[in-house]
């Protein structure tokens, strides 16, 4: 009987996730320019990826993006969750504002920030110029381009992570906090010694989610910078997209890169999970 209940969900999961993943793995051992004719190449696609000089740059970009994205978004979402949790006035309004970017289409996000960050006519540079800050090429200079996509990535997901952490915060037994306050603990002490340790399981979830989101980032970046300037914001998913869908089309190579991405995300998720479990055990 329980299997019957999970059957519809499993059917969808198998059809749209498991089966395409298996097919993707299979295709990674073939060369195909049209998705209909497949020439077996063994591990040729994997060798081609590791021999491709652009891969090192893509790996570096992805590593920079994921590290900064995960750290900044986790820290900021904890801070925002704490602030929102303490709020007395217009609670709903501020939570809605915080969550709003999550509801925007990634394409819209990319277009909005493309306008905001425009070097010549963007409002941000207009503001900077008004206060004598010059007009940085946010989308033209490679380093600034990376900063811009990290910022936008954090902006998009911050609300989502904050809401999860907020739920975690509200699950903390208030008597513990009240007891600490009665014992004379200051607010920073309460946060450091009670709230943050009790929030660890939720924080671990955020870390795992942020790592996955970080590695999977593509849509808004593609709209915002197209992977430029000069490939500085080309992350692994765009590498996959470019190989699979831009001329010259190489579905096999794209699939092989997809398999590698899966293995990276799987390894990081497992590592996060195991480290979290270990800390819990201690």
């Amino acid at each position: 009987m329980p299997y019957l209940f999970v059957a519809p969900n499993m059917l969808i999961f198998i059809t749209f996730i498991i089966w395409p993943a298996i097919r993707g793995f299979q295709i990674s051992f073939y060369d195909s320019i049209d998705g209909r004719t497949f020439t077996p190449v063994g591990t040729g696609n994997y060798k081609a990826i590791f021999g491709d000089p652009t891969v090192a740059e893509v790996a570096k970009n992805t590593a920079i993006y994921v590290v900064f994205y995960v750290i900044i978004s986790t820290l900021l979402s904890i801070a925002f969750a704490l602030i929102v949790n303490e709020q007395k006035f217009a609670k709903g309004f501020f939570r809605a504002i915080l969550f709003l970017p999550v509801m925007l289409s990634p394409i819209v996000v990319g277009l909005i920030w493309n306008d905001v960050l425009d070097r010549k006519v963007g409002p941000l540079n207009a503001l900077l110029q008004a206060i004598g800050g010059g007009s940085p090429g946010w989308l033209v200079e490679p380093k600034l381009g990376m900063m811009a996509v990290i910022f936008v990535g954090v902006w998009v997901h911050l609300g989502f992570y904050s809401i999860i952490l907020l739920a975690g915060l509200q699950g903390i037994d208030r008597s513990l906090l009240e007891a600490a306050a009665m014992d004379g603990a200051t607010r920073p002490q309460i946060i450091r010694t009670i709230i943050l340790p009790l929030l660890k399981p939720t924080t671990l979830v955020i870390l795992i989610l942020a790592t996955i989101h970080g590695f999977q980032s593509f849509d808004f970046i593609y709209t915002l910078t197209g992977g430029g300037p000069l490939g500085a914001t080309t992350l692994i998913v765009q590498y996959i997209y470019d190989r699979a869908f831009q001329t010259p089309i190489q579905y096999g190579l794209g699939s092989a890169a997809g398999v590698i991405l899966f293995m990276i995300i799987f390894a990081f998720t497992a590592l996060n999970f195991l480290l979290g479990k270990k800390r819990e055990a201690i």
Partner: peptide, 12 residues
């Protein structure tokens, strides 16, 4: 000439 259009749009 609008260099942002060339440099800032990647492979698009």
């Amino acid at each position: 000439a609008p260099r942002d259009l060339w440099i800032g749009t990647g492979t698009k």
